[in-house]
């Protein structure tokens, strides 16, 4: 049903949304193992989406166990990790080792050390703000370590503008309205992903995906019209009028 709708969209033209299979290929080709990848969230509020996307990527690539590095400041300000929530994304809490570094310098040291550990599947480096330490030199070091050890390194940079780096790919991730369930309940995690840079390949593709925990894969996710129900009293404009109109069949799931 979803595929048919997507095809219809493509036939209608005008969106960047492509065929589901192409979508998936694009994602898997994007994430090569034993490389450094960067995931950017331009705004602090999109940080959770970026982290969720990173976890989903780790699961899609089957890269376990995960060593997760963050700083103490993040732990205080951005909230601590909640294992039950991570488990509901599909990441077993037993396969996570969390390292809370005192500052950015310690974070980099831990990352450099962990990237060399062949037993790990993925190293997730979470940083907020400008993080000047994660520069070209540091990222090249991480890249070399990753290539040697086979660990996939994901650097999630929240609230930061892209800087030159040695990463294989760079993605921009933002939160996206989900496909609602019955009674306007928020649905599966949905991400608005843009390929910002790709070494040796074209970049600039953009797709909207939702994470399917059961199949460990990304499904294409159409843009959802919002603010059409009783809750819409606040009265914001629709995201995109055209898209909303085209997505009208989706509203059968909505109650009342």
């Amino acid at each position: 049903m979803l595929l048919a709708r997507l095809r219809r969209e493509v036939a209608g033209g005008g969106t960047t949304q492509t065929d589901a299979r192409a979508d998936d290929a694009w994602l898997t080709a994007g994430l090569q193992r034993a490389q450094l990848h960067e995931i950017y969230a331009a705004e602090a509020a999109d940080g959770t989406a970026a982290i969720g996307f990173a976890v989903a990527l780790a699961l899609a690539g089957g890269a376990l166990p995960v060593l997760w590095v963050r700083t103490e400041k993040d732990e205080r300000q951005a909230g601590r990790l909640h294992a039950s929530g991570l488990a509901e994304l599909g990441l077993p809490p037993d396969s996570i080792v969390l390292v809370v570094a005192a500052d950015e310098a310690a974070l980099l040291r831990v990352a450099a050390d962990a990237a060399r550990c062949t037993g790990l599947g993925m190293l997730l480096v979470e940083s907020r703000g400008r993080a000047p330490g994660l520069d070209l030199t540091a990222t090249r070091r991480l890249m070399l370590a990753a290539e040697a050890s086979g660990v996939t390194v994901l650097s999630v940079r929240i609230d930061a503008a892209p800087v030159p780096s040695a990463a294989a790919t760079r993605w921009g991730v933002a939160a996206m309205p989900s496909v609602p369930l019955e009674a306007e309940a928020p649905g599966l995690p949905a991400f608005d992903v843009e390929s910002l840079r790709r070494r040796g390949g074209p970049a600039g593709a953009r797709c909207r995906v939702e994470w399917n925990r059961e199949t460990r894969s990304f499904d294409p996710c159409p843009i959802q019209p919002v603010a059409q129900t009783a809750l819409a009293g606040a009265g914001l404009p629709l995201v995109a009028g055209g898209a909303a109109a085209r997505d009208a069949p989706a509203s059968v799931r909505r109650s009342g």
């Binding site: 060593l67 294992a83 996570i96 005192a102 550990c117 037993g119």
Partner: peptide, 26 residues
């Protein structure tokens, strides 16, 4: 593989302090 991770955990716990390298328990 598990041995490698355990060794890494030991190294990091020794360097950063025991409480900074953590695991979840329900």
């Amino acid at each position: 593989q598990a041995g490698e991770v355990a060794a890494l955990v030991d190294r990091l716990s020794t360097r950063l302090g025991r409480g900074r390298v953590r695991r979840f328990a329900s």
